[in-house]
Amino acid sequence: MAAVEQFGAEGAVPQRSPYFSEEHEALRAQVRRFVETEIKPHALAWEEAGFVPREVLQRMGELGFFGIRYPAEYGGSEMDTLATVVLAEELGRSTFSGVAITALVHTDMASVHVFNAGSTAQRERYMPDIIAGKAICAVAVTEPDAGSDVKGIRTTARREGDSYVLNGAKMFITNGVYGDLYCVAAKTDLSAKPSQSVSIFLVEKGTPGFKVSRALDKYGWRSSDTAELVFEECRIPAENLLGQEGRGFYAIMRNFQNERTVIGAMAIGEAQAAIDLTLDYVRTRKAFGAPLWDKQAIRQKLAMLAAKVEAGRQLVYHAAWMDAQGMEATREVSMVKALCGELVNEVMYACVQFHGGMGFMRESTIERMARDARVQSIGGGATEVMLEEVAKRL
């Protein structure tokens, strides 16, 4: 791995899937080590603060986590979709999904627009700092009245000479408060078909007319900063257009494939961590004179959940492999998002139940994990939308 620092043999993780190479497994061991030593000991404080400290994100950049799929010329490692899945799954296993989504929005939901649609000049200007964790990205598509319905956005960008002027508002924007670079979707031609009216623009923090209206107080993902953004006569250079005018909808749809695979992998990591945590608990917690593990109903429920998680994991891996092979995988990726978003919530519900009263306490890890998981069936494409995508392809 060009930019990925290696760990010693003691961090090795047994290879468990034919989808992954030794390089993938070395990355898995590295991310798992980082989670244990640099996330878990400190992340409760980040939950209270409402954001992940910049030095932590820069450390992730130094380790190569932010450049996994990008070219070496910008500091990347030139790996594939399966490597992204490794990162997302292991960050999901951290039990701190707010940290995971902070990193994954930067790597796989926002910066990809800079790389995929950016000009040579834009890439050279921004990509090195993005990969190094010095410039944190956000993607601003969702609005108060437009989530999965991207065509319904109302933010506009009008051309005036050598500038575009943005007006509108964005909602639920991860990395919105402390981000540096925003990929903003806006309509540039209100007379065009909805799919041909959207463009994407780069807006830097501090641009006049752009402000963070408020930081949002969330049910879960507490350590990820989330914001409402406002653009009022925000003037940016015309060169800040990403790609071609009117092609933004297609760029967003293209990257939804990547985003949904990543969210699925993250959900599987969360579900596995919850099962592991609950197994430890039921083997030591006694009720009616014996460990809970001795109750057949509990053992069998956990066994079935483990089977479902393994099935979901293999679907994630297969969809990622298809994408890495350049195969059409919209159906499989939509299945991943629908299945894993629902499955992680099924797992969390049962694991909270098996923790009893302790599962309802804020001091309990499983309580935080259950809150974090709830959004997995909403963000990145609600389950209902994903099932319609699958149904179209049956």
Rank of each mutant, 00 (worst) to 15 (best):
V4L: 15
E10C: 05
A12D: 10
Y19L: 00
F34A: 03
I39H: 08
L44A: 03
L44I: 01
Q58C: 09
G61I: 10
G64N: 12
G64Q: 13
L82G: 02
V85A: 11
T95C: 05
D108A: 12
H113K: 05
A117W: 00
R123G: 01
D129K: 15
G133D: 12
K134S: 11
A138F: 08
P144R: 09
R158D: 07
A186K: 01
A186S: 07
P194I: 02
Q196V: 01
S197I: 01
S199E: 05
F201T: 04
T207F: 04
P208C: 02
Y219P: 06
C234V: 11
R235W: 05
A238T: 04
R254V: 02
G264C: 08
A265K: 10
T278A: 09
D280E: 15
V282I: 15
W293N: 08
G312E: 11
H318E: 15
H318R: 15
H318N: 14
M322N: 05
E332R: 03
M335D: 07
K337R: 13
N345G: 10
V347D: 10
M348P: 04
A350P: 00
G356H: 06
M358R: 14
F360R: 15
I366A: 09
V375K: 09
Q376M: 15
A382M: 14
A382Y: 08
